[in-house]
């Protein structure tokens, strides 16, 4: 994995059909290989922050460059290099998609129209499945798995594309304590390998034991941007989650 950089300069992001920006004048730079935790109260704009980085939401003002690419004009190219594990997923228990099929979908964006997955793609999928320890689930329908297992599958899907940056929205929300620790280890491993990790989270008990960069958001603004050890993250986030000027 090659880590990617994120450079945001005074960005505003609004949902389509709304003239009220959710992100307001957000500026920050994240270097390659950093481990970033984004905290803040509900509705502060944390998910919007992630979806502005990968270009899924339109940036109305300011400039965002990710992996050296302008997000507004190269959204698809950015998303091919940036993994994004979404929050609030729900899959139909009868849906005809096996775990392996879902993990392979992570490679589809890299392939282009009309091209079928080859040996390299199958190998990347095998490695991601092995890394998440879900080999025994490979042929099972994703809709029949528990929330925690589905979370692992979605992380594997994003790792299968060997991202330069991995964005995660509440990755610990469906997980028991053991699985949290396991996922934390996996994320530490990929960050150590050079991948930039940006994670929205309210659960700070399973953060990797390394220096963490914290971004705290309040009402669409960045109210804190600092680095600290993992065991101080929760206190720092709590202290700065009061309001835009806290």
């Amino acid at each position: 994995m090659v880590g990617g950089t994120i450079d945001l300069a005074g960005i505003y992001t609004a949902y389509e059909g709304s003239d009220r920006p959710v992100l307001k004048n957000v500026s920050t730079s994240i270097a390659s290989g950093e481990f970033v935790v984004v905290g803040g109260p509900n509705g502060a704009g944390k998910t919007t922050f992630l979806e502005s980085i990968n270009g899924m939401l339109p940036i109305t003002h300011g400039q965002a460059r990710v992996c050296g690419l302008d997000v507004t004009s190269h959204g698809y190219a950015v998303r091919r290099r940036v993994g994004y594990v979404i929050q609030n997923f729900a899959f139909d228990p009868l849906a005809p998609f096996t775990v392996r099929h879902v993990v392979m979908m992570g490679r589809y964006g890299l392939l282009g129209y009309g091209k079928q997955p080859g040996e390299d793609d199958r190998q990347a999928v095998d490695e991601a499945i092995h890394l998440l320890g879900i080999e025994d689930l490979e042929e099972r329908p994703i809709g029949k798995l528990s929330g925690g297992q589905q979370q692992k599958v979605l992380i594997a899907q994003n790792l299968a594309k060997n991202p330069d940056i991995l964005l995660l929205d509440e990755p610990f929300s469906n997980l028991d304590l053991c699985t949290r620790d396991f996922i934390s280890e996996v994320l530490t491993g990929i960050a150590d390998a050079g991948c930039t990790v940006v994670m929205v989270s309210h659960a700070f008990d399973a953060l990797p034991t390394r220096e963490i960069r914290i971004l705290v958001m309040n009402d669409g603004h960045l109210s804190l941007d600092t680095c600290c050890p993992a065991d101080e993250v929760e206190e720092r986030v709590r202290t700065h989650s009061g309001g835009p000027h806290a």
Binding site: N54, Y84, I86, A95, H101, M105, Y108, G109, L111, Y113
Partner: peptide, 23 residues
């Protein structure tokens, strides 16, 4: 036939397909 993999990803979950870099 031509867009089989893109279609399967989209019918699985449109947001996940978009995040994967599919048009």
């Amino acid at each position: 036939l031509i867009f089989f993999k893109e279609i399967t990803a989209i019918i699985f979950d449109r947001r996940i397909a978009e995040a994967a870099g599919i048009r």
